[in-house]
Structure formats: C-alpha cells, structure tokens
Design a protein around this nucleic acid. Structure first.
Lengths: 299, 299
DNA sequence: TTTCAATTTATACTTAGGGTATAAAAATCG
DNA sequence: CGATTTTTATACCCTAAGTATAAATTGAAA
C-alpha cells in the first residue's frame, strides 16, 4: 500500500477514534495527515471510502493476530478461543472504533453497507468454524446459531458496561469469558432439542454475499519478489532469509503449509520497527489468506 | 400534544422509515407535513430533537401495548412474555426504525445519546422484572444479566436475518421464542454457578442515569378535566362515561388500582378512530405510569 | 543531468443541508 | 373586536463534502 494512503488512513483513524466519524471533517483529516485535498481524493473517492479502508485494515490486523495466537496451539483449547475473540475488541482500541462501526449499520451508502456486512459475515464464519474446533463435529448444525448469539451477547454486554462506566471496567476477556459460558449452556441445551434461527438456508444466503475474490499465486509471487528486490543489506538479515525462503517455498508446486505458517510468523516479526513493517505485514496477510484458501479448496 | 407537532412527527417518522434519517432533510419533512420551516423549529430545536420525539412516541406505544396485553393474564406465563417482547419489533414497523435507532449509538449529540440510553435502560428494567415474574424470585440476582443477553441476542438475530433476507423471513415472535429458549438454558446454568457481568454495581450505575421525573397528580387531573370539557355529545357515550369515571376515581384518596387498569384499557379503545384518539392514548399512558409509580413507592 | 509523466499542492468554486432572522399573514382566545 | 400567539414565506449564514484546475514537485527512464 502507498505511503500517502497509509499516512491518511492513520490520521483519519486517530481522528475518528478521538472525535467520532461525523465530527471529523475532511479538512481535519488532511491537515493532520499533512496532505492536500487533492491527494485525499486521489486515494479515496469519499470520506466513506476512507472509513472502509480503515475497517479493512483493522480487520486484517485482527485476523493476523488471531493466526499468530493460534500458531502451534491446540485448536480445541477454549481459552485460546476466548483470547482470540477478545482481540477484535482490543484492536478497535478503546472501543471507540466499535461504536463507529456500529453507528454505520443504518447507513444508506451501499458500498459502506456491503463492507460492513462482509466483515460481519467473515467474523461469523470464523467463529462458527472455531466453535466446531472446540466443541467437535457434533455442533456443526448449530455452530452459526451459536456464533450469532455469542457476538450479539458480547456486543450488547460491552455496550451496557460502557454505558454504566462502573469503576472497575470489565476487560474484553472477562466479557468474552462469561458470554462463552452462556454459549456453553446454550449448546448443551441445543444438542438435545434444536430450535434454530440461523438455518442452513440463512447461512447460504449469507455466503452468497461475500464471494471473496481469489488470490492469484502469480500476483502474490510478484509482490514478494518486488519486496525482496527493495531490501538492502542494511535490512535485518533474518528478514531477508525468511523472504527468500517464502519465495522459494511458494514457487514449488506443493507448498508445505505448516512450515509456511511458522515462517510467516517469524517473517512478520523480523520487520517490526523497520520501514518495511507495513508492507511485510500486508504480505503476511495475503499469504495467510492464500493458504487458507488452499485448505478450503481441498475439502 | 399539539396537532402540528403530531403532523410533523408522523411525516418525519414515515420519511425516516422510507429513506433513513440522514437522507431525509428538514425540507423533506416540512414539505411532507405541509408546514413551514419556522413551525418546525417552533416545535423542535433540531432534527435530532424531532427524532427523540419519535423515539418517545414509539416507546409509549410499546409500553401501552404491553400493558394491555398483560391485562388479566398470568404474569408468569412465558408465552405472554414472548409476545410482549416482540411488540417492540412490531412497533418499529418493518424494522427500519430499529436500524435508525441502532445507527445513533455512536452519535455525538449528547441529548440524543441520553434519550437512547434512557430507552435502553427502561427496556432492561422492564425485561429484568418480567423475568422474575416468569422464573420466580430465585433469578433476581441474574435477571439483569439475562435481560442484557436476551436483548443482545434478539437484536443480533434480527440483524443477521435481515441481512440474509431468506425467503421465509422469521417473525419477531419466532426470533424471540428461540432466544428465550436460549435464555432458559442460560438461567438453568447460572443458577448453579454464577458468572455474571451485569453486577449490582453496574445496575446501580445504570439506574442513576434514568431518574424518571415524577408525575404530579394535580397536573394529571387537570389534563383529564380539560379533555372531558372538550368532549361533545357527538363523541362516543362510552368514552364520556369512562372519562368521568377515571376522573372520579383518581380524585378519591385511595385509587382502586386494578379497576383503574381495566377501565383504562376500555377508555383507550373507545376513542379509537375518533379525533381524540391521540390525546386519549397520551392520557392513558400518563395514568398507567402514574399507577406504576404508586405501586413502586409502596414497595 | 535532462526530460517527461504522474503525483501533489494550493486555491477557488459548487452544492446541499442545517439552522437563524424577520416581517407579514393567519389563527386563536379573552 | 382587539391583542397575542402561531404560522408562513423568504432571504440569509455557515459548514462541510466534493469538483476543477493550474502550478509545483517528484521520480524514474534515457
């Protein structure tokens, strides 16, 4: 991603968190980011589009943190799941961004609406599949029902707790912990008699909305090669080595998925604090998604 | 309430439902309501204030429908509770208004925020106390926890179902039914080991926010007398009789609460379809609230 | 180092919408 | 009827989103 674009996104994100979306004007954003109006509109068609970019960035951050957290862990470990869920709240720092996203549910901008729906569905898909990891295949039929209700409870709890602003505010982990306990009870009950709202038809209708665009391997390799070319001897040696390895491994016909996973995490960390951090992160995400796509296709 | 004000509120409500809050301009509202800009600003300080009025009207409609529904029914009947809960969704016709209310969560207008919080707390209070009606005193400690989670699940379910727009959309009753089944499971679990988010401190912090203004009996009597004076022999005889009875009963030192309840319902219905409908309705609500206040004070 | 295309900047402009101000007309009420 | 309040019509102000454009800057290729 472009340097300017990042500049703008970060300024905008901070302003949105501090003052809210509506109370932040384009002028605010461009003067904080030290760019001109023209540049802003070169990168974003509108203020909403800028918000969508932030939403996407935030999501990517969440996804990659969750991947890292699950690395080399037992997928059925309930505590890991709880921590993973809580990450979303952490990433939306200080909860202010969540409020913004919530506040856009009723928005009439079609693009924005679609973006929000996409993110919600992605979250549901992820959680439903993780619930199956934790509770076993037996809950497959009710996994979406439970995912929906879990997210609903978490959101509402956070809302009420924020509203009350009690002295000792509950951490996201505590909230998720209690809610997952409720989910536990619901699952136990549902395994006996299923009264479900989120039926297979509903899920299918949702999936039709999301059609993730496929990641093309060539484009990915090109991106990675370009990244490598731009590295200099000043850059961390380990990072260069990881990059070369990733390139080699992805070039081969049959990737070693698990090894790639491990390397990716190290690759990502090795550029932390350098000027390449952002791009390295972006590349990690893309590869992670690529691997995930592969895995899905095998099924 | 004033005739003009009603005119404006109804035009605005319809427009908000049809086009959304942001996409409805003041011009739209006043031209639909056939009033001038000056009149609009005579009644509402701003567009937001108009929205708050709609919110309040909607709430009153909900509250009174619920009262009517519970009349002479067993308070511990779970089906009645389900129907009562679903009323909120019905009143916010076609769900469009709900979206609007949701979309204001992140709003920065302090008055609007307060209004929304007040309504949410009122809903929580109501539901928590109804859960005790249904499940008994044993659930008092967890009643708010359950109320919060129930509302969270309902909202989220409706959101997802709306998003999916499956062919056979679930009715609000079905949604509430399934969610209450989940709540049932949660209660069962919680009665053994309580892991609660919505602690007494949180609840107390909430209550501090709401401080309902007391209803003064004199003002109420005056309003009712004024209403009676404006009735003519053309108006339904039953309605006149009910009004006189209410006046007499409220004037006595010790009101017969249960009888008043029954009469109120009849009073309300007898003016339906007449030009006094709106005011009669308004008066009913006030008296209901007054009675409710009395009952609370006795505790 | 020069050159040429793309990007960025500064600035001025358009448009939409919320809200204010005010004088004249209409409705309401004692 | 006369006085007071409400309503109307109209003009105006301000903010903020988005457009347009010419001049300046950047950056990479030659």
């Amino acid at each position: 991603m472009n340097k300017r674009k990042r500049q703008i996104i970060h300024a905008a994100r901070q302003l949105f968190i501090d003052k809210g979306f509506n109370d932040t004007s384009i002028i605010d954003i461009i003067s904080t980011a030290n760019v001109s109006k023209g540049t802003f509109y070169n990168h974003f068609g509108s203020k909403n589009e800028c918000l969508i970019a932030i939403l996407e960035e935030t999501r990517e951050e969440t996804v990659s943190s969750r991947y890292e957290m699950a690395l080399n862990q037992d997928p059925s470990d309930k505590d890991i799941l709880i921590k993973q869920i809580a990450i979303l709240t952490h990433v939306n720092r200080k909860r202010n961004l969540v409020q913004i996203f919530e506040s856009l549910v009723g928005n009439t901008d079609i693009e924005l609406k679609k973006a929000l729906e996409k993110h919600m569905i992605a979250e549901l898909n992820w959680l439903a599949s993780r619930l199956i990891d934790v509770y076993g295949e037996g809950v497959r039929d009710i996994s979406y029902e439970c995912a929906v209700q879990a997210l609903g409870m978490i959101q509402q709890s956070l809302r009420v707790l924020t509203m009350a602003r009690s002295k000792q505010p509950a951490t996201p982990e505590e909230v998720v912990q209690v809610v997952m306990n409720h989910v536990d009870a619901i699952i136990e009950r549902q395994l006996k008699s299923q009264h479900i709202l989120i039926t297979p038809e509903v899920i299918q209708a949702l999936q039709l909305k999301i059609k993730q665009k496929a990641i093309h391997k060539e484009a990915l390799l090109e991106q990675l090669q370009g990244f490598l070319d731009r590295l200099t001897p000043e850059d961390p040696e380990s990072g260069i080595e990881y990059t070369k390895y990733l390139l080699k491994e992805l070039n081969s016909e049959n990737e070693h998925i698990h090894i790639l996973h491990a390397i990716l995490s190290a690759f990502n960390k090795s550029f932390r604090g350098t000027s390449h951090e952002a791009e390295a992160h972006e590349i990690s995400i893309t590869i992670w998604r690529y691997l995930h796509m592969k895995k899905e296709m095998k099924k």
